[in-house]
Simulated scan of single mutants.
Amino acid sequence: MDFQPVERASEAFQQSVTAQEIAEICRRAFGPEAVPVSAVELGTGMYNNVYCVALAGRAEPVILRVAPEEGRQFRSERHLMRNEYAAQPWLAVIAPLMPRVLAADWSHEVIGRDWMIQTCLDGVPAPERLGAYPRTQWSAFFGQMGAIARSVHHVRGPHFGPVGGPGHGTWSEAVIASLEEIAADLDGAGLDAGDVRKVAAVAAHGRAALDEVTEPRLLTGDLWTVNALLDPKAPEPVITGVLDFDRAWFGDPAADWTIRMATAKQDERTAFWETYGAVDRSPAAVWRAGIYEARHLAAIRLERHRLGKADAVRESYDTLAGVLAALA
C-alpha cells in the first residue's frame, strides 16, 4: 500500500493509525478480499484523522475517518463521531449534499478507536476555491449557505442537546450542561474555568429567557466555509457538498455556529440572510445570543489548548470577560 500519513510531533493531539490498521479496517468493512492500494491522510481537519483510501477493484476512493482514542477525548467532545452517525437520518433534508456512510464500527475490535467510512464527494474545499472568484460573486456562496442552514434548522427534534444524547427536557438544561462540561474539561487541562462557570451561573439565573425556546430544532454544530465543498469548474461558487456534522445538536437555531459566523461581519456574507430569513432581535433573544457567544468562546478556548496555541488561550480570557460584562 502507498501510505502517506501526515507527519506530526509525538505529543500532537492527532495521531495517525498505521498502514496495517487501515488494511484491517478495510477488510472489516468490505470483506476479507478487500485490498487498499493507497491511503493518503488529509491534513485539513483538526480532530479526527481522515484518509482518502483507494481499494483494488473499486472505481471510487472512500474516506476513512478515525476518532481520537477515548482517553484523549474531552468530556464535552466525547463520542462526536457517534453523534454524527446518529444525526444522519435527521439530516435527510440535505442528503444529496452529504457523503453516505458505508461502514462504522464502535466495537474497538479492529483498532482501539471509533471509525467510519464514507463516500468521497466531488468538489474542492471552499477555502481553497472561493478566493479564485471575484468578491462580487461570493454572495452566491453565502446565499447557498443560508438556504442549507434554513433547511437544517427547520427540522424538529425529540429533545434538547446532542442528537445522540444525553437529551434534556428544556433548552436551559442543555445549555447549562454544555457550559459545565466545557468548564470541567478546562479544569482537567489545568486552565482557569472560573469565567465559564460564571456564564453557567448567569444562564441559570436567566433560565426563563432560555426556556422561551420550547421547540428543539436541528443545529449543524459547526457548518461554515471550512466544511463546504465547491464545484472546481463552475463559473460562480456552487456548493457541491457539506461535511462534518459531529457536533450536531437540538436547540435554538440562533445558537448554531453557522449563525455566529454569518453575523460576524457585514460583508458578502450578508447574502446569507436573503435565503435564511430574519432572526429574532427581541431583548430576550439578544441576551440569549450573549450566552451562546460565551459558550462558543469557551469551546474555542478548549480547542486552542488542544492545538497548543497558548497565546490564543490567554487572549480568550479578555474576550470572554467582555461578553460576561455585557450579560451582567
Rank of each mutant, 00 (worst) to 15 (best):
G241T: 04
R207N: 07
L218H: 03
T214W: 14
T214P: 13
P235I: 14
D222N: 03
V238L: 10
T220R: 01
P235M: 03
A228Q: 15
P232A: 14
L230D: 09
L230V: 14
G221F: 05
R247Q: 14
I239W: 05
D246Q: 11
V202L: 10
N227C: 15
A208V: 10
H205I: 06
E236Q: 03
H205V: 02
A248R: 14
V242I: 13
T225F: 00
H205A: 04
A208D: 07
T220E: 04
V238N: 06
R217M: 08
D231P: 14
L243K: 12
R247Y: 06
P232G: 13
R247S: 05
K233W: 01
A248I: 15
E212H: 14
P232E: 13
V202S: 12
A203G: 08
T214H: 12
L230H: 01
D246I: 09
V242C: 04
G221N: 06
R247P: 12
V242S: 12
A234Q: 06
R217T: 09
R247K: 10
W249P: 11
R217H: 13
L230R: 10
A203V: 05
T214F: 13
P216H: 02
V242H: 06
F250L: 09
V226C: 00
A201I: 04
D222R: 01
V242Q: 02
G221K: 07
D246L: 04
A248E: 13
A248F: 12
A248P: 13
D244E: 06
A209D: 08
E215H: 00
P216S: 00
W224V: 14
H205D: 02
A204E: 02
T220A: 08
A203P: 12
V202W: 02
L210Y: 06
L229S: 13
I239E: 03
P235R: 12
N227L: 06
D244V: 08
G221H: 05
D244Q: 08
A234M: 11
A201R: 01
L223K: 01
F250T: 08
A209H: 12
D222F: 02
V238Q: 09
E236L: 12
D211V: 06
R217N: 13
R217I: 05
I239C: 04
G206H: 14
E215I: 09
F245M: 02
G206M: 14
T240K: 04
L219A: 09
R247E: 08
D244I: 06
A204F: 01
P237Y: 06
L218A: 01
D231S: 15
